[in-house]
Simulated scan of single mutants.
Amino acid sequence: MPWFVKIETGMVDKRIFDQYVPAHTAYVKELIDKGHKAKTGYWAEKGGGMMLFEAASMDEAKAIVAADPLVANGCVNYQLHEWKIVVE
């Protein structure tokens, strides 16, 4: 399956953002259980993060990102890219 990268920047106050982090974490664990090999994290410097995952297509990747609680609740702006791996 192709890999996809969601690169995000926060749009809301940290207090609001943090309310949705547990739901985001649970969502990523669901993705892992479904075989998407998801990984998520944030930049060491304040202000954004990334989620890396496998999906069958760009359409599926878009649906996965749209269902992320951080996206669904308007906490982040994001870019979605298919990642073409050169060396494994």
Rank of each mutant, 00 (worst) to 15 (best):
M1N: 06
F4E: 08
F4D: 08
K6N: 07
I7H: 05
I7G: 01
T9V: 15
T9G: 11
G10A: 09
M11I: 11
V12A: 12
D13Q: 15
R15A: 15
R15V: 15
I16M: 06
I16P: 01
I16F: 02
I16W: 00
I16A: 10
F17N: 08
F17Y: 15
F17W: 09
F17L: 15
F17A: 10
D18E: 15
D18W: 07
Q19R: 14
Q19I: 12
Y20G: 01
Y20Q: 03
V21C: 03
V21M: 10
P22K: 05
A23C: 00
A23N: 03
H24W: 00
H24I: 01
A26K: 06
K29D: 14
K29I: 06
E30Q: 10
E30G: 04
E30P: 00
L31N: 03
L31C: 08
I32N: 06
D33R: 15
K34A: 11
K34G: 00
G35W: 09
G35T: 05
H36P: 05
H36S: 11
K37Y: 11
K37Q: 15
K39P: 02
K39M: 14
K39D: 07
K39A: 14
K39R: 15
T40Q: 07
T40V: 15
T40C: 11
Y42D: 04
Y42W: 14
W43G: 14
A44F: 13
E45K: 13
E45D: 13
K46M: 13
K46Q: 14
K46R: 14
G47A: 13
G48C: 11
G49T: 13
M50Y: 11
M50E: 05
M51Q: 09
L52V: 15
E54W: 00
E54A: 13
A55Y: 02
A56W: 01
A56T: 07
S57Y: 04
S57K: 05
M58V: 11
M58Q: 10
D59P: 00
D59T: 09
E60N: 03
E60D: 02
A61R: 00
A61H: 00
K62N: 08
K62E: 12
A63N: 12
A63V: 04
V65T: 10
V65Q: 03
A66S: 12
A66N: 07
A66E: 14
A66T: 07
A66Q: 13
A67R: 13
A67V: 03
A67K: 12
D68Y: 04
P69Q: 09
L70C: 03
V71F: 07
N73K: 03
N73P: 01
G74K: 05
C75M: 12
V76Y: 04
V76R: 04
V76K: 06
V76N: 07
N77G: 08
N77K: 12
N77A: 11
Y78K: 01
Q79K: 10
L80F: 02
L80R: 01
L80H: 01
H81C: 03
E82D: 03
E82W: 02
E82M: 09
W83Y: 10
W83C: 05
W83M: 05
K84D: 12
K84A: 10
K84F: 10
I85D: 11
V86H: 06
V86M: 10
V87S: 10
V87Y: 02
V87N: 09
E88V: 01
E88Q: 09
